[in-house]
């Protein structure tokens, strides 16, 4: 993954950047499988590697495939990136150790989900239980977000076409 990121940053050809991004997503999916999260891995592989690669390629078809030289200096973006990354790493320092059984997240509602989900819903996949049943409101919100994204794309791309049609008249 580190090699992929280095190649990604150094590459100037946007086509290879998109393909490397897809490779990175697949590697990320294997990491998620190793972390015993097949549901998330599946989403990462299909959306991150498949769908976004196709969408980026079709966007690339509309513009030039060579990255333009940056006009301003690189120091400000670098400083912003380093600061944000540093703050994120600083934030993770307070998190409980990885797979610590006494962590708050494992003592609040997680035991109830893991122990009672099968009896209460009859569905063995706990991820599906939490997603669709216990947290049904959240998922409804997520679906609404996805719908809004689609509606936004329609609104943005369609209005431009209408305006161009109206222009020469």
């Amino acid at each position: 993954m580190a090699i992929t990121v280095i190649v990604l940053v150094r590459s100037r050809n946007l086509f290879s950047v998109v393909v490397m991004g897809g490779i990175y997503s697949f590697l990320m999916a294997t990491v998620l499988v190793a972390l015993d999260a097949p549901d998330v891995a599946m989403t990462e592989a299909s959306v991150g590697a498949g769908m976004s690669t196709v969408l980026l390629l079709s966007a690339l078809y509309l513009c030039r495939s060579e990255e333009a030289k940056s006009l301003r200096g690189l120091w400000l973006p670098l400083a912003v990136a380093v600061t944000t990354g540093g703050m994120l790493v600083f934030g993770t320092l307070d998190l409980p150790a990885f797979s610590d059984p006494a962590a708050p997240i494992h003592t609040h509602v997680a035991p109830r989900y893991l122990n009672d989900a099968l009896r209460e819903t009859g569905v063995p996949n706990v991820v599906t239980d939490v997603l669709a049943s216990y947290r049904g409101f959240d998922t409804l919100g997520e679906v609404t977000v996805v719908f809004t994204a689609g509606a936004g794309v329609i609104a943005l791309l369609r209005r431009r076409r209408n305006r161009k049609q109206a222009g020469p008249q």
Binding site: P38, D39, A41, M42, T43, S46, V47, G50, M51, V54, V123, P124, N125, V127, T128, L131, A132
Partner: peptide, 16 residues
């Protein structure tokens, strides 16, 4: 319900 997966993943695969 029984293995990994669900509506989100299935929708993406069908769209793919």
């Amino acid at each position: 319900d029984f293995g990994p997966g669900g509506g989100f993943q299935a929708g993406v695969i069908a769209a793919a």
